[in-house]
């Protein structure tokens, strides 16, 4: 494609309106740097768009201006106060304490009393520590038994998950986060023999109360329920529904128990095959 065709391909409009992908943007910026014609074409469309926006402007309510500028003033103060982070001066100097002379026996008596008090204090402290350790020990023994039980259950879960991951007949489908939640990710393991579907959550936010994630298989352009995700199972591989054929998978957040059709605005991850 020569430069002329590149300019006429719609990339200029797509870039300026913010609809180009990251790769397209990088390429366009390279082309702008290399060819002045591309820059001229971009500039022309930008000016046209700006003129259109100015001609189609709508005046915002008058009170907004002062509101916005008082917010900006607050930001400006914040900016300045972090810039001049001065040190606090401290002019306080303590007055010298009066000096009193004592006889030698008074010194000994004072020392003995201090020693006695310290000793009593130490004893009380040590007795307290002993009782605390004794209590902690009892609690720890019971906790240990509980933990062991819980660990065993978890271990069994993980072993089951591992079986799914190890299986060589699994199709692995990584679903990436959509623009609503780019950090999200989840993986579908799809048994090519039995068509059983398993779901592994790599990263999804905890659902709000009364809400539950629902897996959808996309079959001929239409979403088909592929099962609800029990959030307690989300740290292992969860068993979902059997799906004989699909062109993609997606997850949306739905009300507890699921919906017959997905809420498109609450989609988190998706992958088309």
């Amino acid at each position: 494609m020569n430069v002329k065709e590149y300019i006429a391909s719609g990339i200029v409009e797509s870039y300026v309106l913010g609809l180009a992908s990251k790769e397209e943007m990088a390429e366009f910026e390279r082309m702008c740097a290399a060819h002045s014609e591309v820059r001229v074409a971009r500039d022309a469309f930008e000016k046209q768009l700006e003129a259109h926006a100015l001609n189609n402007s709508i005046k915002p309510p008058a009170h907004l201006q002062s509101q916005i500028f008082s917010e900006i003033d607050i930001e400006l103060d914040k900016l300045r106060s972090t810039q001049n982070n001065g040190t606090v001066t401290d002019d306080y100097t303590p007055e010298p304490a009066p000096v009193v002379t004592l006889r030698w026996w008074k010194y000994s008596a004072v020392a003995a009393i201090i020693f006695l008090l310290a000793s009593v204090g130490l004893n009380i402290y040590l007795a307290g520590q002993y009782n605390k350790v004794k209590r902690d020990y009892t609690v720890a023994t019971t906790n240990f038994a509980d933990t062991k039980q819980a660990m065993q259950t978890r271990l069994t879960d993980y072993e089951n998950s591992l079986q799914v991951l190890k299986d060589t007949n699994m199709a692995v489908i990584k679903m990436k986060g959509v623009s609503n939640s780019p950090e999200s990710m989840a993986t579908v393991y799809w048994d090519t023999r039995t068509k059983d579907v398993y779901l592994f959550v790599n990263n999804l936010p905890e659902p709000a109360s009364g809400k539950q994630y629902q897996l959808w298989a996309i079959v001929d352009g239409k979403p088909v329920d592929a099962g609800m995700l029990n959030w307690n199972d989300a740290d292992g591989v969860a068993v979902m529904k059997n799906i004989p054929a699909a062109q993609g998978f997606a997850i949306t957040m739905e009300k507890m128990g699921g919906s017959p059709t997905p809420d498109m605005d609450a989609m988190y991850v998706m992958k088309m095959l």
Binding site: K211, I218, G221, K222, P223, M253, E254, K255, S259, P260, T261, P262, D263, M264, D265, A266
Partner: peptide, 17 residues
Amino acid sequence: SFQNTRKNQPLQENVNW
């Protein structure tokens, strides 16, 4: 639309994407 419960109600049956 995420906060809005109205929008979280399921769409009608047979609705396409």
